[in-house]
Design a protein around this nucleic acid. Structure first.
Lengths: 218, 218
DNA sequence: CGAATAATATGATTTATATCATAGTTAATT
DNA sequence: AATTAACTATGATATAAATCATATTATTCG
């Protein structure tokens, strides 16, 4: 039973679920902003978006979680209220770890606590970098950043196609812009020969130059 | 010697500096983005801004640190490169804790590691909330949010004056806008009777309504 | 103390990006 | 297979906020 520690040393998901196993369909909400924290989940299969609503029409996607990722950890702060919503973008299989058990694991395992601490430190760095980008970088840079992130997060096949099937709207919500603007930016990047997009596939032709867009002030 | 643990259980600064004590003048840079991590600092006196540059002209201030706050903790991620710059806004006194000693304290103290983990979890929540705000909230909301944060962080005297003397430019850099726009928004808030500002002082007359601005989509 | 530098105050102008409008396409659902 | 709903594609228009311009007032410092 208390193998979370060994398995989660690097905070990857355990090989098999010691607890309740959950299967959710596309579009189902796993947990939502404002509700009480019940525990954390490990993603076995599928893709999950972690997002924060603003108006009913608008949201910012904070991150995507997939096979091996933990979700719900953002809630382990001082208050017991979830600050974010998690929604399945695919059919998703999750392993649920109830908070009491997770806390017990943390209490009994220093390495796990230390690993989680480092994990948060990295997440914070990432979040604050994106904070700056959302505040000061122009949309084109944020689109480039989004594409590079997707490539890194989901990988690519032999042909360079990013191994995901997110809609433009979803990508736009990550980049912090509207889908119309996102679309226009993709067109610009296509025209400049930095990316290639056919109906279903998206290929980064010049990752270097894309990266430049994310480093250079407008 | 190994009293960091006891003293930093809640991650407040230790009462006296076991290590090197540093005094810096206004505008001096404590550490800067891109350089190697040497350790963490506890602020004893003065105010420090934690910021990330974009162009030479532009920066986003991530947070302010004052008496009792720790800085440099953002660097404890996977790479040893500082992701942020810290600059003194006042004359500042700091206690420096070298990384090896800090790491040793973490290794030997589970409560400290756990406390730091929780601390990061809270910081991450905060950062991601601001991410959403910077992406989707209008400037007026962000200005209101900034004022409420300042009131909370620095407190107010009997007359309600916020106990800080940050320039408008600095406040604007926290709100993620230009100082011209920040100034205009202050005027609007003044006209609406939500704040009162005389040369040196800033008073929140209606914190409730200010908070509303940070909750409502435009 | 007086020069130089940094901060504030405002109006005018520009620009990036959101919003609106409308059509076409694909995907889901009965 | 038909109907709805969701996503994509583009042009036209509006607007929030940045940028530019220029005084004015503080503050630093030689």
């Amino acid at each position: 039973m208390p193998t979370l520690q060994k398995q989660c040393g690097g905070l990857a998901s355990p090989d098999r679920c010691e607890s309740t196993d959950a299967v959710l369909q596309k579009k189902e909400v796993i947990f939502s902003e404002g509700s009480l924290v019940a525990g954390v989940y490990f993603v076995y299969k599928g893709t999950v978006k972690i997002h924060k609503a603003w108006s009913p029409q608008k949201e910012l996607i904070l991150s995507f979680a997939r096979k091996g990722d933990m979700i719900g950890y953002r809630a382990l702060g001082n208050d017991q209220i979830l600050p974010i919503t998690a929604t399945a973008l695919d059919d998703v299989t999750l392993c649920f770890v109830a908070l009491p058990f997770f806390e017990l694991s943390l209490q009994s395992s220093h390495p796990l606590t230390y690993a989680l601490m480092r994990f948060y430190a990295n997440a914070l760095q990432e979040a604050e970098k994106r904070m700056r980008n959302l505040a000061l970088m122009d949309v084109k840079g944020r689109v480039a950043e989004t594409l590079l992130m997707l490539h890194h997060k989901f990988g690519a096949d032999e042909m360079g196609q990013i191994a995901m099937n997110l809609t433009r709207q979803v990508m736009a919500a990550y980049a912090g812009t509207t889908y119309e603007t996102f679309f226009r930016m993709l067109n610009e990047l296509k025209a400049e020969g930095l990316i290639q997009q056919t109906d279903e596939s998206l290929i980064l032709l010049d990752a270097e130059k894309l990266a430049t867009l994310t480093h250079t002030a407008p």
